[in-house]
Design a protein around this nucleic acid. Sequence first.
DNA 1: CATGAATGAGGCTTCATTCAT
DNA 2: TATGAATGAAGCCTCATTCAT
Lengths: 189, 189, 189, 189
Amino acid sequence: MNPKREKIFNAAVKKFSEKGTTGTTMKEISQEAGVGKGTLYRYFEDKEDLVSSLMSYGFERLTEVIKREIEGIESATDKIKKVVEVQLEFYKKHCDFCRFLTREFWGYKNKFEENIKEIRSDYTVVIEGIIEEGIEENEFKAKDPEVAAVSLIGMVNLTALHWFMFKGEVAVDKIREEVIDIFLSGMLN
Amino acid sequence: MNPKREKIFNAAVKKFSEKGTTGTTMKEISQEAGVGKGTLYRYFEDKEDLVSSLMSYGFERLTEVIKREIEGIESATDKIKKVVEVQLEFYKKHCDFCRFLTREFWGYKNKFEENIKEIRSDYTVVIEGIIEEGIEENEFKAKDPEVAAVSLIGMVNLTALHWFMFKGEVAVDKIREEVIDIFLSGMLN
Amino acid sequence: MNPKREKIFNAAVKKFSEKGTTGTTMKEISQEAGVGKGTLYRYFEDKEDLVSSLMSYGFERLTEVIKREIEGIESATDKIKKVVEVQLEFYKKHCDFCRFLTREFWGYKNKFEENIKEIRSDYTVVIEGIIEEGIEENEFKAKDPEVAAVSLIGMVNLTALHWFMFKGEVAVDKIREEVIDIFLSGMLN
Amino acid sequence: MNPKREKIFNAAVKKFSEKGTTGTTMKEISQEAGVGKGTLYRYFEDKEDLVSSLMSYGFERLTEVIKREIEGIESATDKIKKVVEVQLEFYKKHCDFCRFLTREFWGYKNKFEENIKEIRSDYTVVIEGIIEEGIEENEFKAKDPEVAAVSLIGMVNLTALHWFMFKGEVAVDKIREEVIDIFLSGMLN
DNA sequence: CATGAATGAGGCTTCATTCAT
DNA sequence: TATGAATGAAGCCTCATTCAT
């Protein structure tokens, strides 16, 4: 990616995470990025475009990493374990991003809405695919893979964010173990 | 509650859910509520106060309903079932609210931050309590009740919102069954 | 008219005449008018609206005065004399306005274009009517009343503006006499 | 003239006429001219300079054509006829230019103001000269040659522009005949 | 108490101009 | 000499908040 575009991206995530998208001004972003205010508009149509580009970019990176990491893994169970681990690591590393995504994803009408929905869908579908695979192989028993997929995403996403917000850091190991255990074996003794 | 305050609350949730808190103007809220703009300031310090009061109010209602509904239920398992059901019903009924909460909760520094954290904590703690209880009674096996509690909240919250956003309505029955099953018995066959 | 709207109008003509519409900022107008910047937007949709409202208002006033003044006058010749006089007086009194009108009338596409054309037409039509009347009464000999009307307007308008710009003041008497003479009796000896 | 300077000139009139000087950006002009944005600044100090150079250039061309065309003509009456014809033809051919001139000429303080006034004066003076000449030769009867000259310019300029704006084209023949008739013989029967 | 006209700080965006290549 | 990426001053407009009625 264009290095200046990347600098802007990094500055934007940082600020957006700290103060929200609407709480952050274009001026702040340009200062954080060390470029002129006008330069932002050479790389992004407007603020809305910057926000949704950032969101797409994040989902794409996450989806990409997940896809890459589960490649070669055979069993659906092991894939799920890997997915949880990868996501938690990603959230830990990019907790700014995680917060930004969680907050802004459930966005309101904007001109890039459809685009975002698609990207988000790509991401969900990967997890859903693993679960469907597990069902076919008789490894899993879920009736509705979509509910199961979104449930897993919800578990990982909110625990990571909860830890980040209330404890200051994402406790990857602790969360991973428990989440995997619950998702795979359930709570019952 | 003061009826005019309630009218403002209802108007605010509706608008906030449609257009986000920052996308909604005080004028719009006052018009939706059928009162003068100045009147809003008799019931709330400022916009920030309105937003966080609304958030507190929502969490309190939800916590309240949950507490009331699980009263008298004996086993932790049954309590969890009830909690999931009650939450889904609440989200279905107040999906505007659900969207608003999910989006605005992970809020940024504001003068009511601590207050909100506390309210949110109350809510989490109820679920956590049920799980601890289940562990003590040897019904549950979780190592970390907090992770388990937040996981459950994440599952319910994000599936509900996902359905609302992508399918237009919260499919309570379908989600409830699957979420309870996963949370209690896990995915493995 | 609303007194505050009028204050804004007066401030705007003054500034527009001095520095052009695009050279004048909304802030300058608000300061000249002694009101807050936001107040301008209570009385006018936006800057474009302010400009075209001002233009319509001016044409309407001018048309109004002309219509009122020629009422009761019998011969077309005397009406033309009065029209020239009234216009010159109006231009002298509102030379800011005259300059603004001349410069901005030949405007470029904007959302009020049609409205302005109509107003301008009303004004032209009054003069045209007098000429047609004179032709019917066999007083005048023009073949094309529209060319004649616009010619008269052009004579008055540009001489007035020329005097204002190059001599600092509109020499009503001198211009009136000569313009009327040329228009009615021509240049030939 | 330098061919690149000419390309820029042509691009500028076209754009200025379509969208006004302030509505046209330097980028648009450079694209229309097929040169880089920076190149404009090799040929013109700044935008103001481009605008006023264009204005001077136009007046000079017009004055030049008029001077050339009336050369050799004897009577002031015939010269006036020629002047009207030449101007209308010029306006018809360069109606973009005509619109631009009328709109921008009554300009506001800028650093080239004096220069423009002088150029404009040259142009006025030619017409004035013919009228003075006619008076001396006892052909004309005007008391104030300046008023008469500016009146003629106003008639031609505004009728041409009026036709262009309201009918889409300058009806040279019709306007010429009527304007000449009025100016020379007046309206009276 | 209730209202909504008035305010002005501050946001987003544009664009004339510069300057390194 | 020609270019166009970069800049940042400055404009238009919005909207939370106040306060006279």
